[in-house]
Simulated assay, not measured.
Amino acid sequence: MQELKAVAAAALVSLGLLAVPAAAADQPVKAPAPMPASGPKPGEATAGAGSAWSAQVAPSKAGNEGLALDDHQTDLVHKVSQYFAGLDTLQGNFVQTGADNKRMRGKFYVMRPGRFRFDYNRPSRQIVISDGRYLAIQDLDLNNEDRVALDDTPFRLLLRSDVDLVRDAKIMEVQEADDLLVVGLVDKNPNTPGQIKLFMSTKPALELKEWVTKDAQGLDTRVQVSNLAKSVELDSAMFKIQALGRPLGTP
């Protein structure tokens, strides 16, 4: 059970987001301060599609209690909360880059509160889906599934109906530079592991560009989003966790 609760993530945050031009979707966003490069150590296995969702996230170096926010930082975090709280539905493309620089692509769909779906392009046949109560990682090739309560993952912070990161999260990092805002956060609930670093553009308006998670070995997974469409009509059946081997929409 504890291993399941460690479903951390290339986070979902995929909720709202910046319509990055398709040609730029594979270009990493420049952070205010250089991030140390990380890669697999000799003999380590490289990450697959689902590993970014199930990796145990490493503790932050900022301290267990997070930052003591000043008024300006508090205002910035409130704006990020308002951004996610203002989303209803969303769809777009994503590019996931592991520590080995292997890229995996696909499409994602979000219906707040609580529901989202990530479909990885072939040759992967993995699906990550939340029905608002549970998050499931399904591998259609291996015909197996890992499932955990959504409230036991850090994604609940961004998918709940009343998003308030100042209230519900420990803020581990707030940085500004040019047109970029970076916020690192951890759920205040000690039973909900996982740290997520959000990269938000600030011009012309606040929008998510990507997020990064770090696993227990110190390896980063980066997810970039593009071609976003907000407030689109989505079929709620897309977010039903189907038994493996049954087609979408089967009772």
Rank of each mutant, 00 (worst) to 15 (best):
Q2F: 06
E3T: 13
A6F: 10
A10K: 04
A11D: 11
A11H: 13
A11N: 12
L12Y: 03
V13F: 10
L17R: 08
V20D: 01
P21H: 08
P21V: 07
A22M: 14
A23R: 15
A24Y: 14
A24C: 10
Q27D: 00
K30C: 00
P32E: 08
P32T: 07
S38R: 13
G39R: 15
P42N: 10
P42V: 05
E44N: 07
E44R: 02
G48P: 09
G50F: 05
G50D: 11
S51E: 03
S51W: 03
W53H: 11
S54T: 14
A55L: 13
Q56N: 12
V57Q: 10
A62W: 03
G63K: 00
N64S: 15
N64I: 09
N64L: 13
G66H: 01
G66Y: 01
L67Q: 06
A68G: 08
A68D: 12
L69H: 07
L69W: 05
D70H: 03
D71W: 02
Q73E: 12
T74Y: 02
T74A: 01
D75G: 11
L76C: 10
L76Q: 14
V77C: 07
S81F: 13
Y83M: 14
Y83W: 12
A85E: 14
T89V: 05
N93C: 05
F94C: 03
A99F: 15
K102S: 08
M104P: 03
R105S: 09
R105V: 08
K107D: 15
F108L: 07
Y109I: 06
Y109Q: 06
V110Q: 11
V110K: 01
M111N: 03
G114L: 06
R115K: 15
R115M: 14
R117S: 02
R117D: 12
R117F: 09
F118I: 13
Y120S: 07
N121V: 11
R122K: 09
S124K: 07
S130G: 11
D131F: 04
Y134K: 09
A136K: 00
D139I: 10
D141H: 08
D141E: 11
L142V: 01
L142T: 04
N144W: 10
V148D: 14
L150P: 00
D151I: 12
P154T: 01
F155N: 02
L157D: 07
L158C: 02
R160A: 08
S161K: 07
R167A: 09
R167Y: 10
A169R: 13
A169K: 08
E173W: 00
E173Y: 02
E176N: 05
D179P: 07
L181H: 08
V182M: 11
G184H: 06
L185A: 04
L185D: 02
V186F: 02
V186I: 04
N189Q: 12
P190Y: 06
N191K: 14
N191A: 06
T192N: 12
T192Q: 14
P193K: 03
P193W: 00
G194Q: 07
Q195S: 01
I196N: 03
K197P: 00
K197F: 15
L198T: 15
F199H: 06
K203F: 10
L208N: 04
V212F: 14
V212R: 15
T213W: 00
D215Y: 02
A216Y: 13
A216E: 10
A216W: 10
L219P: 03
D220V: 11
R222M: 08
Q224E: 09
A229G: 04
A229V: 09
S236D: 13
S236Q: 13
A237L: 10
Q242R: 15
R246M: 15
L248V: 03
T250N: 10
